[in-house]
Design a binder for these strands. Structure first.
Lengths: 348, 348
DNA sequence: CTGAAAGCGCTAACAG
DNA sequence: CTGTTAGCGCTTTCAG
């Protein structure tokens, strides 16, 4: 009959009593603050150990820090986010900070806003947002209230730090790679952008824009073909069906990210087209699955763990007081695999 | 020069002043508590709206609830967890509760303990643990302190609720399916179990045990072959290589879960073996990718969204006061696809 | 129905 | 170096 919470939690007062000191002394020891003799320090530490005391985060929150870092991410379906999170946790390990995640509703802006507010209401010491959809102006408002790092967006702001992949370079690598293989009709799959108003500097927009630019630079402006769906398996599938319906159909697809590329491969398989014989496919993110021998998907590698680690480091710096904005950009590399090959001969 | 937090947050006192009532009144309105006239209620609500007041979770935590549900999950690499989480968020939408996630270190028991403590220290109103490694005795301690739901484990406890897939039934479906296709040498990939001491009722142990039982029941005890790696792409790859090294090698592999099955498919591709011609492969979880035409992986479907929704519902019930333990089990179904087929003729 | 007042556990002035 | 004390924002008796 699990009676709930009968055993009152050990508090700083219990520790103080047990160690025969004041609560102030305990607090000082806990925070490694100035003004506690080694002897007292030892006695308090022993008492903490004996009583199994752990600080009550909510009580701390009322005066000082919560030692909690809030991480906002759109969803947990993209393995790239898992890499980023591993980097974050790696950087936080050994500190007293703990990361808590909240899921913003994918492409639902309102849900994301609620998630951000939830984090603020819970008084986290700093926030890391992964590819948020929220308008820059709102991000700056949040940054005015607490340390903020934005991962995966390119805008420049003096209010928060930015950690991002150089999407421009990555896309250029992919599109050039395809062009060098002789492709001219290269399709692209992008995502719907939920934000009304000014377009955000989100990866999918940068990639689409760069795709356009590189095509144009090679005199292929007329061959530009973008299917706007979403970067999920289904989105890649649907987008590919859309591109296949064109006449003449493309000979290569840059799917935007790996998840979409997997959907593209499925759609091509279903259509009876061979890869890369009839159609080349490239993704972006270089997920584990892309490297698997039976998939062997050409992709763009960006070090997600490094990005996560860096973001967490920058955030802790801000929590410690840094105010000047920093930007950290990761340079991607192309990983060519068997899903891309020479354009079919009939293309000329 | 983002000056941090200059604009003091709106508090209940501000609202009270603005609405010309006491803070008690505001608090009552916020909690829909008894003892506030409709008129006052309206006035307070208007003030809240005007001032953009949002309750301060930490302050609430000191007296009452935080309206926060803690979700512990091993990692975010398994798409099945994403389904569960969608179910949780779906159930929580419309309530005032917010889910926060913490990642326990995969197979690292100590990291998981720290994550659980982090949740307790942050005074969540209830905890949902997804496939935790922690010993049952510790789970019961936690359950004595706060509402707890455990998802994905089979033990029976009077202290917390359990939501789980009937892994026994699922595995039986897969193994029988393979046996009916004429396979006799059926290999299995399982995970290393970190827990010392009593084995936990985790899915991979149930599946392995059931695999053994069904093989035995069909007189195939001698053909039992288990590779113990991990349920990741790499683990599936390594496990398959291990099984392939046996002589004679199996003609079918039940990979334990889809992620591992993807690794298995890669290893077989690399080994030049055809699926299902030379080897049948089955997974478990029925992830989106398994359904893709080019993969077409036979799998076991278990409704993750339903499980998440149910877990969240049960947790809220407990938060509201229910004490009697409940168990909810989801019945899985087999989804046969092209990755499984008749055993090669040479098997007899 | 309404409000004054006493804390929840902790931190940070401030005295001693 | 040490301890006393006044809150942080909210909930919750308990009088009016």
């Amino acid at each position: 009959m699990a009676e709930r919470g009968p055993r009152r939690r050990v508090t700083i007062a219990d520790v103080a009593r047990h160690a025969q000191v004041s609560t102030t002394a305990v607090s000082k020891v806990l925070r490694n603050a100035y003004g506690a003799s080694p002897a007292m320090r030892d006695r308090v530490k022993a008492a903490i150990e004996e009583l199994g005391y752990r600080p009550h985060a909510a009580a701390r929150a009322m005066r000082g820090r919560t030692f909690t870092i809030g991480v906002l991410l759109p969803h947990i379906r993209n393995p790239f986010f898992a890499d980023v999170l591993d980097g974050v946790n790696e950087q936080l390990a050994g500190t007293s900070y703990q990361a808590i995640l909240v899921q913003g509703g994918g492409t639902d802006l309102a849900a994301e806003s609620r998630a951000i507010e939830a984090l603020i209401d819970r008084q986290v010491d700093g926030i890391l947002m992964i590819a948020p959809l929220t308008a820059k102006s709102r991000l700056e408002e949040v940054a005015a209230e607490m340390p903020l790092i934005v991962l995966g967006r390119h805008e420049r702001s003096s209010a928060y730090d930015a950690v991002f992949d150089d999407d421009d370079a990555g896309t250029e690598l992919v599109v050039r790679h395809l062009i060098e293989l002789g492709h001219r009709r290269i399709g692209h799959i992008s995502q719907r952008c939920p934000g009304r108003g000014r377009p955000l500097a989100l990866p999918h927009l940068t990639r689409a824009e760069t795709y356009r630019r590189v095509m144009d630079e090679h005199g292929l402006a007329a061959e530009i073909a973008i299917a706007v769906t979403s970067w999920t398996e289904e989105g890649g599938y649907d987008g590919t069906r859309e591109l296949l319906a064109r006449s003449p159909r493309p000979t290569a697809i840059f799917a935007g990210d790996d998840q979409a590329a997997f959907g593209a491969l499925a759609a091509l398989h279903e259509a009876g087209l061979s890869v890369p014989g009839d159609m080349s496919v490239a993704g972006d993110d270089n997920t584990k699955l892309a490297a698997m021998a039976n998939i062997s998907l050409t992709s763009v590698d960006q070090d997600g763990v490094l990005m996560g680690r860096t973001a967490a480091r920058l955030l802790l710096e801000r929590v410690e007081g840094r105010a000047a904005a920093m930007r950290f950009s990761v340079t991607p590399t192309l990983v060519p695999r068997r899903s891309t090959g020479p354009a079919p001969a009939d293309q000329g």
